[in-house]
Design a protein around this nucleic acid. Structure first.
Lengths: 230, 230
DNA sequence: ACGATTTTCCGTACGTCGTACGGAAGGAGT
DNA sequence: ACTCCTTCCGTACGACGTACGGAAAATCGT
């Protein structure tokens, strides 16, 4: 039976010999590597190289690649500034919180995807969750309504950030591959003829990401507020 | 210069020789394989084997693995039933539409992730988008508000479906790995002591996925409705 | 009818990946 | 000094995406 490794559990137990690596160091290196190379660019070999360690050394600290992703995700979530000025009303505070979250996800475009595909149980994710819940409790929610409200906010910011970063990256590399882009565009235009509403109401080129994000956020917050009287 | 492959463009042009494969056949096989093996389990080799073809034969029809994902995603989106009874009010119609979407995403748990990480430009995704837009135009929205409203709904259903399927899959395999689960739980409980709001207001075991989904959906729809007067 | 052309099919090969395994090396405790 | 536990990591295996180029087949021009 192999030594059990913690996987997805966050503390580190006793350590009878002083180690060169640590889960924290690995987490930080993973974040840095993900920022530069993206999700597809993170490999155990590259990660180890960046830490001047042998590849297999990582496995003393980490259960596998999935564990690295868990670690990196929680590490990035830690960048969200959680403290809010005393006495700030809940709606304003939540707005700040969500704008912050989007900022962090813009710095780490790989984050929304990872958050959507794993249970976020790291300490920083839990802390963030605590803040969201307590702000909405202050607003007057509890029980399933509370859970649902937290969900809508979380899914919105994750979904928006994911969309934004895929869009931005397509815009970037299409500067080089303008040809293929032209064909795709032409194809879309052809489709548009059979989709009149879409054609009339959407512009593809201008993209006011900031304004658009705030608009959607207002919708969700309005919806939460609308349910308070019930 | 290599023969250009369409990538992400959807029609197929002239065909001077009758082919055994086709983009449609590949798309269907990819969906079936993804359903069984998940995103990580889809490989070009396995996909080809399922079609009784050599691996490299796929590349006559498909630009690469990314293209296969695009194809599979649009193919799955096709399962969403788009027609709505005549005269049904917009809110009810949208609800139907979103419940449908969630159902499809439950049948294809890999779908929400793929949708979040790529621009959905396939014919079925565009058709779905057209329906959403026209329903919200009927509701009285236009311009950036319209775009934002479509966004909130889309992100909500994708985010919820992604959460639901990761949760469900964890619940499944934890039947086998109950030990590790117990440790995770114990860890969570320890964290809960420092997160009082979270501790008081969340239950982990019971999970009324259907009801919870509807609650969140009502929030978003309420929010859209609240913005109509402005 | 038949060669030329075009298109489909796919075997081989290369570089990369995650990680199982087992050994080496280095304190800590006795 | 000896044991034991931990850290470190070289090697190796099977699987992956796909570039390349050749074989075979269908179509077309004549």
């Amino acid at each position: 039976m192999p030594r059990p490794r913690p996987s997805t559990i966050w503390f580190s137990p006793e350590r009878p010999r002083k180690p060169r690596l640590s889960r924290e160091r690995i987490a930080r290196a993973a974040v840095a590597l993900l920022d530069v190379e993206g999700v597809a660019g993170l490999s155990m070999r590259r990660l180890a190289a960046r830490l001047d360690a042998g590849t297999m050394s990582l496995y003393e600290y980490v259960a596998g690649k999935e564990d690295v992703f868990d670690l990196a995700a929680d590490e990035a979530v830690a960048e969200i500034d959680l403290d809010i000025p005393d006495g700030m009303p809940w709606r304003e505070a939540l707005t700040r919180q969500l704008v912050q979250s989007r900022d962090v996800m813009r710095r780490h475009p790989w984050l929304p995807t990872l958050m959507a595909t794993r249970p976020m149980l790291g300490p920083h994710a839990l802390a963030r969750s605590e803040v969201f819940h307590s702000l909405l409790v202050e607003a007057g929610l509890e029980g399933p309504r509370l859970t649902a409200a937290v969900g809508t906010l979380t899914y919105y910011v994750q979904g928006y950030a994911a969309m934004e970063s895929t869009w931005r990256s397509r815009m970037r590399d299409s500067a080089a591959e303008a040809e293929l882009r032209r064909r795709a565009r032409e194809h879309l235009d052809r489709q548009r003829e059979s989709h009149p509403t879409l054609a009339r109401h959407t512009r593809l080129d201008d993209a006011d990401f900031d304004g658009s994000f705030m608009l959607g956020l207002e919708i969700v917050l309005d919806g939460i507020e609308a349910g308070l009287g019930t």
